[in-house]
Simulated scan of single mutants.
Amino acid sequence: MKPEPAEFAEFFTQWEPHVRRYLVWLEGDLALIDDATQETMISAHRYWLRVQKLENVRAWLFKVARQRLAKAQQLRKQQGVITDPHEMPGRKSATCEDVLSLREDQLAILSAVRKLPRQQAVAVALQLQHDLPLREIALIMGITVGSVKTHLHHARATLETLLSDVDGGAR
């Protein structure tokens, strides 16, 4: 059974911006963010009957979004296309500055988070952008709460170093 157009349109309007903001923390290439967001919402439409019954829609959406992003990144890598803005010669990093109008310090944090190992970046994005409790972060990531704490601890230490390098030790 397909969702009613108005019903899914309301769902899409509510959740698409959250999925997009989550992915911005993990990827600098706006085309990849768009692709992964679109694929996530297509999956929500495809599995609408299940999605409607979920206790935690956000957890499902973020988990699917992360999987779709990883798939898109892997495909680009196999095709030999550079997706990491830091690896692109002569190109300014795609920081989403124009799109999100973030202040300079927020851009520095965003850039630093993208340099973290993937699991750490995911945990930080879920905590900082969405203010999720550790239990929900664990559910989205498919790991234990203890592992989430470990990822966040290591991420904070790395971010402290990365951000102090940006500020010349001022943080």
Rank of each mutant, 00 (worst) to 15 (best):
M1L: 14
K2N: 12
P5L: 02
E7N: 04
E7Q: 03
E10G: 13
F11T: 01
Q14Y: 08
Q14P: 00
W15F: 14
R20D: 06
E27Q: 05
G28M: 12
G28V: 12
G28R: 11
D29Y: 06
L32K: 01
L32S: 04
A36L: 10
T37I: 04
T37A: 13
Q38E: 09
Q38G: 08
Q38M: 08
E39G: 09
T40V: 09
T40W: 03
M41L: 13
S43P: 00
S43N: 13
S43M: 12
R46Y: 06
E55Q: 14
E55V: 12
W60A: 05
L61F: 02
A65H: 02
Q67E: 13
L69Q: 03
L69N: 04
L69E: 06
A72G: 00
R76G: 06
Q78T: 12
Q79R: 10
V81I: 15
I82P: 10
D84S: 11
D84Y: 05
M88E: 13
P89S: 12
K92A: 15
K92D: 14
K92R: 15
A94K: 13
A94E: 15
E97P: 08
E97F: 09
E97S: 14
L100Y: 13
L100E: 10
L102P: 05
E104P: 08
L107R: 00
L107Y: 00
I109E: 11
L110A: 02
L110N: 05
L116A: 05
Q119C: 09
Q120Y: 06
A121R: 01
A121L: 00
V122M: 07
V122L: 07
A125Y: 09
A125L: 09
L126Y: 11
Q127F: 11
L128I: 13
P133R: 15
P133M: 14
R135G: 10
I137F: 07
L139K: 15
I140Y: 02
M141K: 03
G142H: 03
G146W: 08
K149Y: 08
L152K: 06
H154Y: 13
H154V: 02
L159R: 07
L159E: 06
L159H: 04
L162Y: 04
L163E: 04
S164P: 01
D165L: 11
V166P: 02
V166D: 00
G168R: 08
G168P: 04
A170K: 10
